[in-house]
Amino acid sequence: MKITILQLFLHLLLLFGLSPLLSGVIGKTKALFAGRTGPPWLQLYYDIWKLFGKGLVLSRVTTWVFRAGPVVGLAVPVLAALLIPFGSIGAPLSFTGDLIFFIYLFGLARFFTACAALDTGSAFEGMGAVREVTFSCLAEPTVFFAFIVLARLSGSLSLDAMFGQTLAASWHSAAPSLLLILVCLFLVTLVENCRIPFDDPNTHLELTMIHEVMVLDHSGPDLGMILYGAAMKLFVLGALVVRLFLPGTTGSMILDLLLFAGGMLLLAVIIGVVESTMARLRLLRIPQLLVGASLLSFFSLILLLR
């Protein structure tokens, strides 16, 4: 239980500064595969900046819940980011059992995003809300199983310790379990951030979309907040995957930071590769894949139980 000002500052700086870059890297990777130049690296920064300066258009049907969606969607990833370590830089906030709080924070964001989508009274947004809550519901057991494996290996119930210094040693003793967990958490990152193969963030065909269709009616600063929040969510969940993939520390803080940033960019490239080489799954196959992922993470736990 500790709060360190330096860590807090670093966390917020990394989160606010670096998170929109991931989307740029993904875009560039996809452009490379398609043989295009693609949007600039900093496109999302421009977008967010421009949207923050614009006016709002509100539907006549909507109420305060519609406005609450972006607010919660921005506040939640920021708070969640403070609970996890970025690379070997420890979490500014940590307490025993914070992983439960972490998971339910994202539940809060989901709750309000879905309610805000339904508040427009449009069938499209309703469709997105349904898919979001259903798929995330199936992804939740996976996260819990993954966390319980890490808790078992580290002997602690706080995210900071679970993704902390013991992780490197755990790779020696329980590599198979951790590898499975890595795959599962990567899948969860994809589904929670609505990337291919679960959702296509590019298409504007309502039938294929989840997240994009939910925010169809938001505009101006609200849309900017949503884009920023989504980028941060990707950053936060991605940070867990990267930490799992790059455990340990080099000893110097600068090097660790660079390593972490490099890891995040690599993750973005991987996501870009996945998006370029895979097709979106059929909608009814998605629950199957998610159940498969939870069973896989449960199996990795069984490996440890012996």
């Binding site: 709002l56 258009v57 539907s59």
Partner: peptide, 13 residues
């Protein structure tokens, strides 16, 4: 941000 910009009402898109 809302104070700085304009707010327009429209039908749901």
């Amino acid at each position: 941000r809302q104070r700085r910009g304009t707010v327009a009402a429209a039908n749901t898109w």
